[in-house]
Every structure is written in C-alpha cells, then in structure tokens.
Write a protein that binds this DNA or RNA. Structure first.
Lengths: 465, 465
DNA sequence: GGGTATTTGTCCGTATGTATG
DNA sequence: TCATACATACGGACAAATACC
C-alpha cells in the first residue's frame, strides 16, 4: 500500500501525497474512486489523521481529487492526454559542484574572492523583502526599475562619479550587455556604425554586432582614444572606457575627454561611457566622468558586478533626457528585467550606507592586491614583460617578450593550476600586435597567493623565453 | 566649527565627514591646507580619535585629502572641472509605498493575488543558496544559464508541453522580451521583417521594432493565423501564440498548426512560438506544441511570470540546434542575465516537485475564477457584450456594444475603483475594429470579488448603452 | 419515514524541532 | 546565545452526511 518512513527528511504528509499522486496518475486508483477516509488511513498507516488530511488537502488544491463534505474524497478524471505517467522526482542526478580543485590560483577576470561580500547582511535584507514587500513581488515592475534604488544610484553617482542626472534618467538593467543593447536600440535611427577603442571590451563588440551595427575600431594611445582617427569613421556613436580603458588600463586624459565631447557636439553623436570599474583607482587623481562634462551627449553605464557580486546581474545606465523620452516611446509597457528580489535588497543595502563602506573596503582590498601583483611581476620578470595599465581596476595587461602565442602560455599555466582568461575572449584586438598579451585579473586571487602564483608563472614560462 | 549630534541617527564620523567635505568643496578649508590632527580634533569635539580618523579615511578614499605619514592630512586641489559644489543628499525621503487604496477591484493583466505563492518555501530555498552556494555567487555564470535549472525545464516541457529538446537547447532569459530580442539577433541575417498575429502581443511588437525589423501584421480567425495571408509577406519569421492567442484567446487548430509548419519549411523560415500562458487551459483538450511538431523550425518561448511570480523575471527559450550553434558563435563569453539567486531557488523548487504542485494549484485557482467571471458577465451583460477567448489563460477579451471608446470605459471604471489594463498598452491591433474592446485580466482579483466587480461595471457602463 | 449511531470532513489547540533574527 | 517564528505532527472536539434500525 503506502510506505511512509518517518526517518526520511521529506515530511510524512508529503510522502503520502506523492504516493497517492502516482497511484492516481497511473490509474491504480481509478477515476471516481473514493479514497479511504482520513481516520481509516491514519489508523492503517499509524500516523495522525491530520497527516493524512494534509496530504488530501494538497491533492485537492491541485485538482487530483474532489471533496464531498462529510462523505469522502473522490478521484477526478485527469484529462491531460499525454501525461501517461509522471514520476515526481525522476532522480535528477544532484549535480556535483563544478570542481575547482584543479585551479590553484585564479587569475581569471571578474570573479571575486570569498569573505569580501557581506552575505549575512544581504541574506537578511532579502528576507526583509519576503516579509515586508509581498505586494510588490506579485506585480510587474515598471520599465526603469525601482524608484528607491534609482534614487540611491543618483546619490552615489553625484557624489562619487560626478555624474549629473535625475532619477528619471536612470534605467536599471540586468548587466552591462543589456544596457548596451538598449543603447543600440536608441541609436538605431541615428547611425549604422558604432566606433570603439581598439583593443576593447569584447562583450561590447559582440553586443553591437548582434544589434546589426558595423563596428569601427579606433586606435588609442595611453591618453585614450584617437579622436582624429574617430573623425574618419561615419559612426555617430562611440563606445569608450575612459576611467580605466579595457583592457590596456590607461586613463583618458582630460584634454582627450574634452576633444571627444567636442566630436560628439560636432557630429551630433553620442558617447557611450562604460564606467565598468566604477571608482576603483589607487593613488591617481580622479577625473570627472564624461557624463558630468556633457550630460546631453553621454550614455553612461555602470555596474555592480565588480564591486558587489557578479551573479547579481545588476547594472544601470544614465540616459540624456531626450533619449529617456525616446525610450519611453519605444518601450512603453515593457517591464524592468531585474527581479524585485535583487533590486530591493540592493536599495536597502545602499540606503543604510552599507554600499559605501563596502566599496571602501573593496578599494582597499584591490589596492593591496594590485600593488602586490605589480611588485611580484617586476621582481620575477624584470624587463621580460611590460605591464600596461595605471593604478586602477582589477586587472593588468602584460606584454610578454617571447615567441610563444598567448594561447599557448595560457594553456601551460592551466596545466600548472593557474587559471587565466583566454585572450580574445574578454577583449578584442583588431590591429596586429607583436608580442603575446595576457590579461591578468587579480580580483579573485587571495593576497597571499599572488607572490607564489607569479613565481610559478615565471617558472613555467621561462622555458619559452 | 563642527556640530556633532550623538542623538542623530547618522553616525558621528559621517556627520564630521559631511561637514569637512562641504568646507573643502566651498573653499572654506583651502587647497593645501593641513587639517587638524586627529588627536586635537577629537579632543575639541569630545569624540573618540577613531571617529575623527574614520572621517579622515573616508575623505582620503575619495581623494579630497592626501595623507603624509607622520605629518598630517592636506587638502587636495580638486581638479574636477565643474564640481562647483556637490551637496550630499541627506535623507532620501522614504518612499511611501504606492497606495493601492483606491483600487478596489483589480482586472489588470498579469499581476497575481497574494496567498497563492508559497513565499515561505521560496524564502527557505533562497536562504539555502546563501548557505550552500556561496562559490557560485561570486562568479559570472555561463551564457545559457544554470545547468540544473535547464534540466528541470527540459523535464517539465517534455511531460507537459510536448516540447522535445535537450538541455543544450535551453536558454534562460530575464523575461520574454529578452528572449524575443535574442531571437531577433539570431534571425537578423535571415530576414528584415517579422510577421505577427493581428491583434497581437504589444511587447513582442515593440521588441521587433526596437530590433530594427519591419513588422507585418497578419489577420487571424478563431482557428488561428491566416497562413495564406502570411504567404504574401516577405518575412521569414512569424511570431504566434498558438496555445492561447493573445489577446483574442483562440486556440490554434491542429490543421492550422500543420499548415504553418509547412510554411516554415517552404520558406526556410522560423516560427517563434510564445507559450506565455503555459498549459493554463480548462476543460479543453491540449494540442501538441508547434515545437513538438517541428523542432528544427520553432523557437519556443516560455515564462514563469504567470505561474510563479511576475517579479522573478525568468523566462526561457528552446532553440533549434543550428541556432544554438549560431548563438554560441555570436555571444560567446556573455553571461546569463538571470541572477543566480533566482535561478538556483527555482531549480530547487522544481527539483523537489513543488513547481508541479504549484502549477496544478494555480490551474485550479484560475479555472474557478475563469468560470465565475464568464458567468457573471453573461448574467449581467447578456448579449450587450461578446466574450472572445476559449477556456484558457488568465484573461478574457470583451467586445462591448456601445458607442463609447474603450479608453473612456476604462477611465470610468478607474473612477469607480476598478483597474483595467489600458487597451493598446498590452496589445496592438492594426486592422480597424467596430466596437470598443476591453481586456479583462482575472489573475489578480479574488474569486469572491468577481461578481460584485462585474455588477459594478455593469452599473457604471449602463449609461453608455 | 423518522430517530439514532456511526462515519466523515473540518477545525482547534498543542508539542517539538528547525531556522531565523 | 537566546528568543521567536514556523513547519510538522499529533490528538481531541464538533457538525454534517450517511447508514441502520
């Protein structure tokens, strides 16, 4: 009949429910049949009547049976044609956590180390949402995102990034790529090509391509994008990473910024400013964001992936006012794609000041690792490598003076347990380059692991010199 | 000098920081000036030296001052071009929750009633993620989404929707619109126009337009889209809602389905099947999904918004195998846009059989409300209205035989506290139509409210007859 | 056919362990 | 660490439906 095991972690009533359900679906208990009364069954199975009753209630709620008061429960005719037999849990193999065992040192880009993110706080904020915001969970949210979160972002941007905007201009997106996609949708009527820095951020390149735009690579030097070269392109939009160029790490100079803005006004075009590493800079003076210099000409994009958690999937964009109107005309009645359960905890996190302190903590954290990595590289490699990138961000770009390909160097490192982002995966380079380039992300690796990791790299790669 | 109030809820260090910052920005403390030492200032203000130091550290982190070791802190020359004076925004007004007080009966489309969603269970699953999956929270996830969740979706689709696919073909997206956008990206090289049912789902129309496609409206009757008319379009892709046409509610007949598939093979085109209301049908026999009939020609899109929670923002698409390859070529290294904190709880929810239970519960729930609404409308309006839509979905479409515009009817209802989705917001209608049409969603309203709400509607609208 | 005993669903309070704050 | 809340499981009390005399 029924086999109930009180030692099993699944509750008794649920075990009974499952077994009844299977018997109904495969016809062992035929339609219109009357189930045993809760008293009888409970006596048979040596469990409480309520246990049986709870199982019956569940079947009732799901339409497997109907109840006649004071008479009994009767099996419904299930009219699903092709539900021949539906086992409840068909034993999904519990996926073994992808074993990172082999990775000893992680130099991949973007992942974060444990113990930096305040998990308990975030968990309690999430639970607070379940307690206090049930109503909003049951609804679709508006296009731009939660108003409260947008207010917090405005405050943050005004104070730390010199970005000047009102809440109406903020749009919450599920990652930078969505932001870029939306930017493309807004610019489709203005241009058929988008210019970007070469080398540049691969995901942006793909986003533009996927949106049907031609991408014009524009060379850059250590002061930033070559505005003269930009003038040769017909593109009316340019994608740049001025606060910390990806991947070279240079910071766009103020004169270059002003010339770029001049270009935007002349061409009646737009600048897409990707401030992906937020205000992660160490010992270098801040330069005002492009957006702050020309709010009407800049689409500013920021992200929480680097500072908080990559898996949160929250980014945001600041749109010029005319584009806000355009967006609302284009996308009226489309819901924001970031779940409320992510937006609200983030809002509370910022509101209560935890974000600011967390950012400070992270800056310090990365600063130490940045310094340690630069030192370790210089000590171990000397002038065999050149490090590009200034005191900012969460990665360095190495040019390694050897004959092997970057691909091969990365494979060799992988064999020794050092994970490095495959070159050409995270960035694109259109112009040919002489030596292999390696992008070394230092966000995930622990401070104390940096020196031994670099020594190991030196040992592995020395044979290629 | 400085006024610190320990009774104030903002921390002491922050009060000091704010005041110092203002004085620096407006020049009261000039560039290069040395700040008072932390010992002196703490004595002056009768606070701990740490309090002063924390404030100084914050200013330091933000680049307002520089520290010379064993000498003091000196004010930096703020070289931001146009930072004239940035007041910190104190105290964001705590937003009053949008008061739904005025809404007595909610007939808007898509929202859900409380007490149907198992919040406690979901909450505990979310917490389980914080406990057991910290590693994965610190990482970017892969393009297609969590493998475990995709497995569960495959199982569900196979059993309930006749969809035939492997995990490799499943892509998790943050809502239907993202799925449609991705579909557009995949079809860009094949076609410049997309055909869709007229009337049809507005968000889809907007998505196609925003992606730069021309949209060809194709008329339909109660058996589904007019395939003959479809042949007159040059579009190589057609968007349909066969399981429950939006908004008319008709179910596409099997012959029509087969003819549509024939079209796809002839034209070497694709069908985008939006199964938005999943298997929400009452007393009507299910018809196999288009995907099940022609897996190579159909892009199938499903969503969890209607059955679980709109605010979760999770949908999924099933791609033909050749498009999977295309996608991976196009979007390599782009992360899935659904947060891990949403994907994982959903996976566990499905794995443990709660999703199936919940779906059956919801079907029962909606079935009752559907019946009650149809009865109430027929009793109160008789032949003054015609109800279109068969026994499926979470809405009805009413054609009201009166001279007033739909807009006006909706406004009148709103005055009486009855919320109805604005027509033309959720659906588009290209062809002209004689009587005003009203889309009545019955997902949010409580069962017992349906009859009084309809009576009230009758009373309000009777003057327009 | 009417009264009574029994069966049955339904509702209530309570004890216990776990999870959350 | 302790208090609280919740899910689970239990037994008892009540009223309606049914069966029986």
């Amino acid at each position: 009949m029924f086999i109930l095991d009180s030692k099993n972690k699944t509750p008794l009533y649920r075990q009974l429910y499952q077994q009844l359900r299977v018997k109904i679906l495969n016809g062992e208990i035929p339609p219109q049949a009357r189930l045993a009364s809760s008293r009888k069954l409970s006596a048979d199975l040596k469990v409480s009547r309520n246990t049986v009753d709870t199982a019956y209630q569940q079947l009732l709620a799901e339409g497997y049976i109907v109840g006649k008061s004071r008479s009994g429960y009767y099996v419904e005719t299930i009219n699903n044609v092709n539900v021949s037999f539906v086992p409840e849990i068909a034993e999904v193999e519990t996926l073994p956590e992808p074993s990172d065992e082999k990775i000893k040192y992680d130099f991949t880009y973007g992942n974060l180390p444990p113990d930096t993110f305040p998990f308990p706080k975030w968990q309690s904020l999430t639970n607070e949402c379940f307690r206090n915001y049930k109503n909003q969970l049951l609804k679709y949210s508006s296009l731009m995102g939660e108003l409260g979160l947008r207010k917090e972002i405005v405050k943050y941007l005004r104070v730390y990034r010199d970005v000047k905007c009102s809440v109406d201009q903020i749009l919450i997106t599920s990652g930078t790529v969505e932001a870029l996609t939306l930017a493309c949708q807004l610019l489709r009527s203005d241009t058929t090509a988008i210019a970007m820095e070469d080398p540049g951020f691969r995901a942006a390149y793909l986003a533009f391509r996927n949106q049907g735009f031609r991408v014009d690579p524009i060379p850059l030097n250590h002061h930033g994008i070559n505005v003269k070269a930009l003038h040769t392109s017909i593109a009316k939009a340019v994608y740049v990473t001025p606060s910390h160029q990806f991947p070279t790490g240079s910071i766009m100079s103020i004169t270059r910024r002003l010339r770029l803005i001049e270009w935007a006004y002349e061409q009646n075009g737009y600048i897409i400013e990707d401030d992906y590493s937020s205000h992660l800079r160490y010992d270098v003076k801040p330069i005002s964001s492009l957006q702050g210099l020309a709010p009407e000409k800049v689409i500013y994009i920021g992200s929480f992936s680097k500072m908080l958690l990559p898996s949160l999937r929250v980014a945001y964009m600041v749109l010029p006012k005319n584009l806000v109107q355009k967006l609302q005309g284009q996308s009226d009645f489309i819901a924001c794609s970031v779940p409320f359960l992510i937006q609200k905890p983030l809002q509370l996190f910022m509101q209560e000041g935890y974000f600011e302190s967390h950012v400070r903590k992270m800056i310090n954290h990365f600063k130490k690792k940045h310094k340690a990595l630069v030192c370790a590289l210089q000590e171990n490699f000397g002038d065999e490598i050149s490090i590009s990138g200034q005191n900012a961000g969460i990665h360095l770009l190495l040019e390694i003076k050897c004959s092997a390909s970057a691909q091969k160097l990365i494979e060799q490192a992988a064999k020794a347990g050092i994970a490095i982002s495959t070159s050409g995966k995270s960035w694109v380079h259109f112009a040919p380059h002489s030596y292999p380039c390696i992008l070394l992300g230092f966000s995930a690796i622990a401070l104390d692991d940096i020196l031994p990791a670099v020594r190991l790299l030196r040992k592995i790669w020395s044979s290629e010199k």
